[in-house]
């Protein structure tokens, strides 16, 4: 019966000619193809000496931002934790005491703030949910480790230091956020 599609391949047991049975022309053609690739541009790079440029909105390790005066932006409102689909974020809030106004921007702040980097899927919803522009994902890669405990990042590793600020202006001004 006639096939309804033409995807079928008919098998034949055709005999090879003498030239074909030597295999040599085919082998040479194959080698020529292989050697030609030696002179093409390489598709890979030599990591870690060379590194690829990141996209401006690459979603890597988080940072907890401080404002211009060096006060922490986070007020432990919990919106990042409730938005997190992987349940990677936990926090404990505390009340700012008189005299700590230079450390925290609002009267409530996060005493502990932990992100479990193994749970995290780097979706960026925490950044999206944050009403205080406190948590951002950056182009830094989470370092590897042999211990699971090492991947629970507390405030000591998440909050940017006052002298060594993490630049996130590119993320703020590209994509959905647009130019400010």
């Amino acid at each position: 019966m006639e096939s309804l599609t033409n995807r079928k391949k008919v098998v034949s047991d055709k005999q090879m000619t003498f030239l074909e049975s030597l295999y040599l022309p085919v082998v040479l053609a194959g080698m020529a193809m292989t050697f030609r690739h030696m002179f093409n541009k390489s598709a890979t790079i030599r990591y870690p000496e060379q590194q690829r440029a990141f996209a401006p909105v690459y979603r890597g390790m988080h940072v907890l931002k401080r404002d211009e005066q060096g006060r922490e932006n986070c007020t432990a409102c919990g919106l990042c934790a409730v938005a997190c689909p992987a349940e990677a974020i936990t926090m404990v809030a505390g009340e700012r005491l008189p005299g700590e106004e230079h450390l925290y921007r609002e009267e409530k702040y996060a005493v502990t703030y932990e992100i479990n980097m193994i749970r995290c899927i780097f979706c960026g919803l925490c950044e999206e949910a944050c009403p205080k522009e406190a948590v951002f994902l950056t182009d830094r890669i989470v370092p590897t480790s042999f211990d699971r405990e090492d991947f629970v990042y507390g405030k000591n590793r998440l909050v940017e230091s006052i002298d060594n600020r993490i630049d996130i202006t590119k993320r703020q001004h590209t994509g959905k956020r647009g130019k400010k």
Partner: peptide, 9 residues
Amino acid sequence: FRFKSRVWF
């Protein structure tokens, strides 16, 4: 209950 938690947790 001040600043202990958020109601949705």
